[in-house]
C-alpha cells in the first residue's frame, strides 16, 4: 500500500514535524507510521499536538516530544502522552507556540536563530538548554532576548484537500503547513483528491498553493484527517475523539482501540 511505502521514508531516530489538529493532520498516515515507520522518533508539534501524537506515543514510537502542548481539545487531556510523562517514558522539550514558529522560521531562512520576545523568567526557558539569551545588541544595555535555533525536521507530514498532477498542494490559509514544508528535508502530503487542473494556473488558487518545490511525496487518502476535520471539507468527529480519550485511559484500553481500528482498515 502506498501509505506504507511513505511511512518507510521515516527512519528510526527521525525528527518528524506534525501539524496542529485543525490545520490538516494526516491521520491516514498514523497506522502506517506505527507499523512501517522508524522508532525513537523526535516529534515536533506545530505548534501543538493531539490524537496522532498521542497514538504514536502510545504505540511506543516516540523518544522525544517538542511541543507547546498536547491535548485532545474538547475531548480532554492526551492520555498516552500524560502517562508517558508520568512514567518518564519520553523526553520533553516543552516550548511555547511562537518559539516553535521561530525555530521553523530560522530553518526556512537558513539563519542561525530567530530572536523572540517573552520567555524571560519562565521555566519553559529554564528547561531549554538548547536556547540562548543575549542582551539586545541594538539596545543601550540590558534587554535580554531569547534566541531560538533552527528546527529542521527530517520529515514533515500533513493532509490537504487537493494536489495537482505537477505536485503542487493547496494549503489555503493554513500557512503553518508551508512553514513546516519550507523547514523540512522531506515533505509528505496526503490529499483528499488529485485535480487535473494545475493549481498555479489562476491567481486565486496560486495564493494558497504550496509549490511542488517543497513537496516530495503525495498520496491520495480520502477522509484522511478523520476523526479530525479538514478545513472546507468536513468537520471533526468529536464523539470519536471522546471515545478514544475514554479508551486510552489505560494501556490495555489503548491497545484494544488500536487493534479495533486496524481491523476496520483491513
Amino acid at each position: 500500500m502506498e501509505l506504507n511505502r511513505l511511512a518507510e521514508l521515516v527512519p528510526t531516530g527521525a525528527c518528524l514535524a506534525l501539524p496542529v489538529d485543525y490545520a490538516g493532520v494526516s491521520m491516514a498516515m498514523t497506522l502506517p507510521l506505527i507499523r512501517h515507520g522508524g522508532d525513537d522518533l523526535h516529534l515536533v508539534c506545530v505548534p501543538t499536538g493531539g490524537l496522532q501524537v498521542d497514538m504514536l506515543i502510545g504505540a511506543g514510537k516516540v523518544r522525544l516530544v517538542e511541543t507547546s502542548a498536547v491535548s485532545l481539545g474538547e475531548a480532554g487531556g492526551a492520555p498516552c502522552f500524560n502517562r508517558a510523562v508520568r512514567d518518564g517514558a519520553i523526553d520533553l522539550r516543552d516550548a511555547t507556540c511562537p518559539a516553535i514558529h521561530a525555530g521553523l522560521l530560522a530553518a526556512q531562512k537558513g539563519a542561525p536563530f530567530t530572536a523572540m520576545r517573552g520567555l524571560i523568567g519562565t521555566d519553559v526557558l529554564a528547561n531549554r538548554p538548547d536556547w540562548r539569551v543575549i542582551d539586545n545588541p541594538f539596545g543601550t544595555g540590558g534587554d535580554p532576548v531569547a534566541l531560538i535555533p533552527p528546527i529542521v525536521p527530517d520529515v514533515a507530514i500533513f493532509h490537504c484537500p487537493v494536489a495537482d498532477r505537477l505536485g503542487n498542494v493547496w494549503i489555503g490559509r493554513r500557512r503553518e503547513l508551508a512553514a513546516m514544508a519550507y523547514a523540512a528535508k522531506l515533505t509528505i502530503v496526503t490529499v483528499e483528491r488529485i485535480s487535473d487542473r494545475p493549481l498555479l494556473e489562476t491567481e486565486e488558487m496560486a495564493a494558497g498553493t504550496l509549490p511542488a518545490l517543497y513537496v516530495d511525496e503525495i498520496a491520495v487518502a480520502p477522509k484522511g484527517a478523520r476523526p479530525y476535520g479538514l478545513w472546507g471539507e468536513y468537520g471533526p468527529d468529536t464523539a470519536e475523539l471522546k471515545r478514544y480519550a475514554a479508551a486510552a485511559r489505560s494501556t490495555e484500553g489503548f491497545a484494544d482501540y488500536m487493534t479495533a481500528i486496524v481491523g476496520e482498515m483491513a
Binding site: 505548534p47 508520568r86 516543552d94
Partner: peptide, 17 residues
C-alpha cells in the same frame, strides 16, 4: 518537572502572550 504527577497539555502561547 519534567516527570509531572499530573500533566496538563502545556504552556501554549502563554510564555509569550
Amino acid at each position: 518537572y519534567p516527570q509531572s504527577k499530573v500533566r496538563w497539555p502545556g504552556s501554549f502561547g502563554s510564555a509569550y502572550l
